[in-house]
Structure formats: structure tokens, C-alpha cells
């Protein structure tokens, strides 16, 4: 009898410090586990609690999964203080991921804010391995301060990949920061994308998603071409516990990736 609430065991193989508040946990699964980019998992600290995360690694790598975690709550702060080689539980994957087939031949604008770059990194890896299928990948990333930028070493490398264009910004700079200062919407000007065949993918804190979406609509992106990763209080991941409802959808099962067109007429989606 299959129990849908039962987690599989994963070992923390490595812990990478990304920023003062964010760490990436490299997990090795003891049993087969596959996910599609954009789907999420529920991670359990055995006997303590669980929380939802979207893996940040390349889904083509089997049996190893990276989860990038910001220290914001009870479970995440305990995760942050834990050490290598401990056992975690993993349930999932849940939900629908990014519809890569719909991105083929397109200019893909990816806009991330803060730790919201984590799911997007998994998407980027998925796009990079088959970059010939896509016309262009444009990444725009904003963090609060230069210290808060995650994947610091990777971002400049991504910028060198063919067909990939990267720009970053911080809300507040420091003495060493030479780049743009301002909200992520300030680097959404003069985008090297052809609106006739462009899609956009947004992930970040609710307020950032709201203003980015408004900006994208303003630039001429169609509601059906704006993909949003919604963050809700997920518990079961299975469309049963009720917590993640937005309008007629459950974020866990119908999302977490929605087009703006799907959410358009639902009240208070940015709250």
C-alpha cells in the first residue's frame, strides 16, 4: 500500500554558502527521484518538520538534487544550522513545472529576485543543455545588496554562454559594486528580445513579482506569455490539505507555475 505522505531518504552531501542568509544543500537520494524543472519538493527534517522548495539543480542530473534555502522560518533555520551527512526526507516532486516545449524557438526573458533565482537556476540549466532549441535566453536578476546575490561565481559564467544575455542589479550598492543600482524593474529597459516571439518567466518575492508583471505587461508581453512561480503556504503538495488555494486553483497541483492569464481575474494574487 503506497503511502503518499511518506518521504524518501536523502543525504546532505555538501552545503554551499551562497549569501549571509542563503545556503545550497546538495542532496544525494537513496532511492530514484526525478523531477521536472519548476516542480517542487517537500523537504523533511526527520521528526522536526517539513517545508516546500523548488530544486535549483539541473533535472538531467539523476539522484542528486540541489535545494537552495533562505533562512526564514523554523524548518529553514534548523536546516541552516545542520551539518553534512545528515539524513533528510523528501516527498514529491509536486506540481507542474515550466513548459519547456512552449519556450522552443522563443526569446526567453527570465526575471529573478533574491532567492527566487533558485528555481530559475534549474530552468537555466535545462535551457543551457539544449540551447539550440531556443532563440535567446535573457536573465535579469536583482538582489537587495551585492552580498545577497546568490550563485555569485556562476552568473558571470552563464553570461559567456552563446545566446545568453545577463544583467544584474542591487537595491543598495556598496563600495565595491560597479553595476546597476535599483529595483529589478530598472533593468527591464531596452531588452534584447523580440516581443513577437518572447516569453517571460518571473520568480521572486510577491511584491517584486507584482511590479515585474506590471512592467512586462506595459512592455507588451501578453498575459499568456508571462509565467509566474507562486509562493503559497504549501503543506501536502497533493491538492488535499487546502492551504495553497488561489481562486479555483491549488498552487501545489495546478501550479506552482501559472501564466498571468490564468490568474488575471483572481483577487489578491500578490498578497
Amino acid at each position: 500500500m503506497k503511502n503518499i505522505y511518506k518521504p524518501k531518504e536523502a543525504i546532505v552531501e555538501d552545503i554551499i554558502v551562497e549569501s549571509p542568509t542563503i545556503k545550497t544543500f546538495v542532496l544525494r537520494l537513496k532511492e530514484p527521484f526525478e523531477f521536472k524543472t519548476g516542480q517542487f519538493v517537500e523537504l523533511t527534517l526527520p521528526g522536526i518538520g517539513e517545508a516546500p522548495f523548488t530544486p535549483s539543480s539541473d533535472p538531467n542530473i539523476k539522484n542528486k538534487i540541489d535545494v537552495t534555502v533562505m533562512n526564514v522560518g523554523r524548518v529553514t533555520s534548523l536546516l541552516h544550522t545542520s551539518s553534512k551527512n545528515i539524513s533528510l526526507g523528501m516527498r514529491g516532486p509536486y506540481g507542474k513545472g515550466y513548459p519547456l516545449d512552449k519556450f522552443e524557438g522563443k526569446d526567453i526573458l527570465i526575471v529573478g529576485g533574491g532567492v527566487g533565482l533558485a528555481p530559475l537556476r534549474s530552468l537555466l540549466f535545462s535551457l543551457f543543455v539544449e540551447i539550440d532549441k531556443y532563440n535567446k535566453v535573457v536573465l535579469r536578476y536583482g538582489a537587495r545588496t551585492p552580498d545577497d546575490i546568490i550563485y555569485k561565481e556562476s552568473i558571470p559564467r552563464w553570461a559567456k554562454i552563446k545566446k545568453v544575455d545577463v544583467a544584474t542589479t542591487v537595491d543598495v550598492g556598496d563600495t565595491k559594486w560597479k553595476g546597476n543600482v535599483g529595483l529589478v524593474t530598472t533593468i527591464l529597459k531596452d531588452l534584447p528580445v523580440d516581443l513577437k516571439k518572447a516569453v517571460s518567466v518571473v520568480c521572486g518575492p510577491p511584491i517584486m513579482m507584482k511590479f515585474t508583471t506590471l512592467k512586462l505587461l506595459d512592455l507588451g508581453f501578453k498575459p499568456q506569455d508571462i509565467y509566474l512561480s507562486m509562493e503559497k503556504n504549501m503543506s501536502c503538495g497533493l491538492g488535499k490539505c487546502g492551504h495553497c488555494r488561489i481562486g479555483k486553483f491549488y498552487t501545489c497541483k495546478d501550479g506552482p507555475v501559472f501564466t498571468y492569464e490564468q490568474l488575471n481575474d483572481i483577487h489578491d494574487i500578490w498578497e
Partner: peptide
């Protein structure tokens, strides 16, 4: 409902 984790002795429970 909410899922919560608990340890009783050596037993992990949801």
C-alpha cells in the same frame, strides 16, 4: 489539514 513531524523514541512520524 496540516502535516507535522514528530519523533517518538526512534520513530519518526508525520
Amino acid at each position: 489539514f496540516l502535516l507535522a513531524d514528530k519523533k517518538e523514541g526512534n520513530i519518526n512520524k508525520k
